[in-house]
Amino acid sequence: MFHAVVAIKQVPDTTNIRIDSETGNLVRAGVPAIMNPYDAHALAAAVEWKRRLGGRVTILSMGPPSFAASIREGIELGADRGILISARQFSGADTLATSYVLAKAIEKIHSEEPVSVIFFGKQAIDGDTAQVGPGVSVRLDVPVITYCSKIQQIDCEHNEIVVQRKAENYTETIRAALPVLLTCEKEVSKIPFASLPDLVRSLRYEPEIWGYEGPMELERDKVGSKGSPTIVFKTATPPQSEAGELIYCDAVGVANAVKMVLKKSEFKAAIKLAE
């Protein structure tokens, strides 16, 4: 039977983030928390295939209690079961510690209900590292296919999947044995508009909470900040550069403004180079 596990993350909507000009800090107030868009598309793909083949979709997310809202959103998009992995000990995790915990969780889920495909979004829009998916695949010894743009076929009987993958200058069609881990591009599936019963179910849904004490068996020095080789040493706002000269078309006219640009030696030099 088809059983997909989808890893999701709640992120701030980074297109709306601003820097406070006085303190130089991130202004998080009023920035909505959303399900990482790539994860949402990955989940949509999992649900689409569940509906075609029959089966179940389990979502999981490692984070603070506020991530429950995204688990609910996942149920709304069609997942059957949602697990929130949350404990004090998990905080401060970098990608290595995160992949450890997620891999352990997926192992546990697999022991109860064999997993056919593990879905990840290609990257989270806050961290942008794209590391956790491949990291989990290494820990689970499951092949990974990144940048999936299309799932062509899933055959649970013969344990096979065929996907399309997008690289910078080629696309490829790959066949892999199940189980497999996919990291997905947005085009892998469209986000469905949930039915009313699915939406209502999600509003009433309480995620299962998996903590440090159980049901996974975790080594203390591999989770959270203890298990994170990388730490943030410091943060800074990007330096503000010196503004150059400003020409107003209102004042000098469009033709003159352009003339002034064309006169610049750097402009001339750049054009010459192209010839």
Binding site: F193, A194, S195, L196, P197, L199
Partner: peptide, 8 residues
């Protein structure tokens, strides 16, 4: 409503 099975 505008959702599938969207009757209350």
């Amino acid at each position: 409503t505008d959702r599938e099975d969207g009757v209350i």
